[in-house]
Amino acid sequence: MDPSKTPKTILEARNLGFQYEGAEARALRGVNFGVERGEFVLLAGPSGCGKTTLCRCLNGLIPHFYPGVQEGEILVDGSNVTSMPTSEVSRKVGYVFQNPENQLFALTVEKDVAFGPENLGLPRSEIRERVDWAMGITGTTELKNLAPYELSGGQQQRVALAGILAMKPSVVVMDEPTSFLDPVTAEEVMKAVDDLRLEHGITVIVVEHRLDLVSRYADRIIVMDSGKVVADGTVQDVLDGQFDQLTGLGVGVPRVSQLWAMLKRDGLVSGQTPKVVEAAAEKLGGKLST
């Protein structure tokens, strides 16, 4: 192992391919990328391009839960997870699913958060510590005695996140974690995720159609189409360089970037495409006052 490389890259996909059993075509083909520790990666692309399939590979649901033919490998923290059982992988890569209701098992929030560590067979004192920590950083401590059905969608999703964090994974993968939530709650959840990353150095990979919601937080965007990576870079660079390709794929680029592109086409503005409203306001403000 090269000591100068290992500490930075936390997750690496090498030539990853997958075909579901009985499917006509491959859902993933030759996917390569690396993610650095503490990075916030946004995964986008049209429906059916393989985002969910990629997430399933990352946490071992493929090939254990979904049979099919897999190629290539995934390294997490230097170890190859494709050959590990899901229960082992779950300690390295946490997975938050789309529907928050279907990932809560216990009768109270606190016990649900404890569920993962219990499965790991950790000592009681350590479970207690992890549960309190995970509830604390997801803002769910005051919900601890409530039942899952007594929570709002946003609260449920934060509890699901807490349950994953209590397993202390190095990477958290979230597949459209806000699609069941209203915009305000979705914003809250994304904010909570961003805090995690900033304050606890947790690496996050989020699948999200609405770039508006995440462009503010994400360092990087990986865009997929038909099972392949077609763009990979900072959100800024991809918006600047591949804007037309993104809109062509139907990726929900931020509205403010769309506006900017229109103005640019008319020759009214120039330079970097803003990804958040504040950046645009600053640039336009400068223009309007002169």
Partner: peptide
Amino acid sequence: LAEALEARGFPG
């Protein structure tokens, strides 16, 4: 639910 159970290290 079964999928989410896997992700939580069940059955442990």
